[in-house]
Computed example of a mutant assay.
Amino acid sequence: MTATPRLGAIAVLVDGDRVLLAQRGKSPDRGLWGFPGGHVEPGETALEAARRELFEETGVQARPVEYLTNVDVIRHDTDGRVVVHYLLAAVLCADPLGTPRADDDAQDAAWVPVDQVRSGALPMSARVADVMELALLRRRALLSR
């Protein structure tokens, strides 16, 4: 672990009553379902990174709309030392194009019914359901304008 937390971006894409999720192929959270995402590269905004990572991991293209929230991912070893610390910028995306397929470091990618996320039917990364609910609220507000 470096002394400085790493910045990442996740693409939160809700379409009707479904949300696009990817099953992580690498640590942290290997095997868990969550929003497609990854590191923000130098000179890249988190909005740009969310769009890029979404396409790299799922083959789906979408337009980044706005920042939703931030998610801290902090993991400790058995001695209490920080071994992972990411600050993830959750980016609301819209207008999906393409069919999800796992690529890059994703094991799987799929449109998942919102109700399945709410019920915890899949093994998921922390805060996926909370961030999805925030995206649903924000999307409704934007559509009602």
Rank of each mutant, 00 (worst) to 15 (best):
A90E: 07
Q107F: 12
P28L: 08
L92E: 02
D77M: 07
G25V: 05
V12R: 01
T69V: 04
L134H: 03
E41F: 09
W33L: 02
A141M: 13
V60G: 06
W33S: 05
P28D: 03
K26W: 12
L136P: 02
P42C: 05
D95M: 09
S119N: 11
V60N: 05
H76G: 00
R81T: 11
E53P: 05
A106Q: 11
D95F: 10
G34E: 12
E41M: 14
V117C: 05
A135F: 01
R145F: 00
R101K: 13
Y67N: 07
G98D: 12
D15C: 12
G98I: 09
V60I: 12
L87A: 06
R81G: 08
P113C: 01
S119H: 06
L13R: 01
G38Q: 11
L134W: 03
L136Q: 09
M124E: 12
F55C: 06
K26G: 10
A126W: 10
S125K: 13
D115Y: 02
Q107N: 10
R6D: 13
A102G: 08
L143G: 00
V91M: 01
A46E: 11
M124I: 05
L20G: 01
D104F: 15
L122A: 05
S144Q: 14
Q107S: 09
L54Y: 03
D15F: 08
R127N: 13
L137R: 14
A121D: 10
V84I: 13
M132G: 02
V131P: 00
D103W: 10
D103P: 00
L7D: 14
A129I: 04
H76A: 10
Q116S: 06
G16V: 11
M1K: 12
V83N: 08
A141G: 04
F35R: 01
L136Y: 02
V12E: 03
D130Q: 15
A102P: 10
H39T: 09
F35G: 01
S144K: 12
R139V: 03
E44G: 08
V128R: 02
V73S: 11
P36G: 06
G43D: 14
E66C: 09
A141R: 13
D108G: 07
L13W: 07
E133R: 03
A22N: 09
Q23M: 14
A3E: 15
Q61F: 06
R51F: 05
A62V: 05
T4C: 08
V12N: 02
E41T: 10
V131E: 01
V14W: 02
R118M: 10
R30L: 00
E57R: 14
V65C: 04
R52A: 14
M124G: 04
G16Q: 08
L88H: 14
G34C: 11
Y67P: 10
L88G: 00
V117R: 00
E66P: 00
M1G: 15
L142D: 05
I10Y: 12
L122M: 03
L13T: 06
A135T: 01
D77A: 07
V112K: 04
P64C: 01
G31F: 07
L7V: 13
P100I: 04
L32M: 10
H76S: 07
W33M: 03
A121L: 09
T99I: 13
P123R: 07
D77V: 09
K26E: 15
A135G: 03
R101C: 08
V82E: 11
A129C: 13
W111M: 04
D29E: 15
D79K: 12
L136G: 02
R127D: 15
